[in-house]
Simulated assay, not measured.
Amino acid sequence: MSSPSARPNRGPAAGPGNRRALIDAARRIYAETGLSAPFTSVARAAGVGQGSLYRHFPDRTSLEVAIFQETLAAFRADIADERIGLDALFTAVAGEPVLSTVFVQMIRDSKDAEVVEIADGYQEALSLLLTRDIARGRVRADVDVDDVIHAASMLAGELTAVPLEDRPAAASRVRRLIDAALAAR
């Protein structure tokens, strides 16, 4: 007889829900503390066992890849509207600065094939936004994707260094500097 608090084992049927819970928990934890959070804390926050964590994500990189594949897919969907420019990127970074810092660090440092694919997709999306903003006269023609990545990284880095309640004001200040630096002359 099981104890009253024990959850019934749903077997393979629980797989998709557990995977979703793990990704959501990791996104929350990494957004608060970065990638240094203990891997086991993700399982705990998702309400699943470590076996389930390792079954879905055998290592930290595979979990990060899953998070950032979803992030990139959502970003691509958001920028499908032709009216969207680089402002969408900087708004997204300001909304999740810790996760954005982790993302940029991961795509810069990893040689994992899936991470390289995400990095290529990210650069392709940024190139589209940059091309739109250059064509509209919002951004100088000599600005390239690496410049945009550096600007996003600076924004995220600055916001992770200030208390949560000060982030909106800090984001506004940094955004003004970035806008001025990239602006068409």
Rank of each mutant, 00 (worst) to 15 (best):
L22K: 03
Y30T: 01
R76A: 07
G95E: 08
T33E: 15
P16F: 04
G15A: 15
A37Q: 14
R44A: 05
F75G: 11
L86K: 08
T91M: 12
G95I: 04
L99Q: 03
A119W: 03
E64Y: 09
V115E: 10
R83P: 10
A74T: 07
A43Y: 00
D120M: 10
E82N: 02
D81V: 04
R20M: 12
F39Y: 14
G11S: 15
G34R: 00
A46V: 00
D24A: 14
R108H: 06
P97G: 08
P16K: 10
F75K: 09
R27I: 07
G121P: 03
A14N: 12
N9H: 15
G121K: 09
G17E: 14
S110N: 11
A26K: 01
F39I: 01
G49D: 12
F39L: 08
E114G: 08
A46L: 01
P97E: 07
V104F: 12
R27F: 09
A80T: 09
A43F: 00
Q123K: 13
T71H: 08
R83D: 15
V104K: 11
I118P: 06
A13E: 15
E82I: 04
V48R: 00
I23G: 02
T33V: 11
S100D: 04
V98Q: 11
A43L: 01
G49A: 13
E96H: 06
I79Y: 03
T40H: 10
F68H: 13
V93M: 11
V116A: 15
S36Y: 01
A73L: 10
S100N: 10
Y54L: 01
T101D: 03
G85M: 10
A92Y: 02
A14G: 14
A73Y: 02
F39M: 08
P16Q: 08
T101L: 07
A13W: 07
L89G: 12
A14D: 14
E124R: 13
G51E: 00
A113L: 06
T33D: 14
V93W: 06
A14P: 12
E70G: 15
D81W: 03
V115Q: 08
T40Q: 15
R27H: 13
F68Y: 15
A45R: 11
Y30N: 02
A46K: 00
A88Q: 06
V102Y: 03
A92T: 05
T40F: 04
V116G: 11
G121V: 06
T61K: 04
I29F: 00
Y54K: 00
G34V: 00
D120N: 11
S62A: 12
A31M: 13
E64A: 14
M106S: 07
A77S: 10
F57A: 13
E32T: 12
Q105Y: 03
S41H: 05
G15N: 13
A119I: 03
L63S: 03
A37W: 09
A77C: 08
D120A: 15
S62C: 10
E64S: 15
T101A: 07
Q105N: 07
V102L: 04
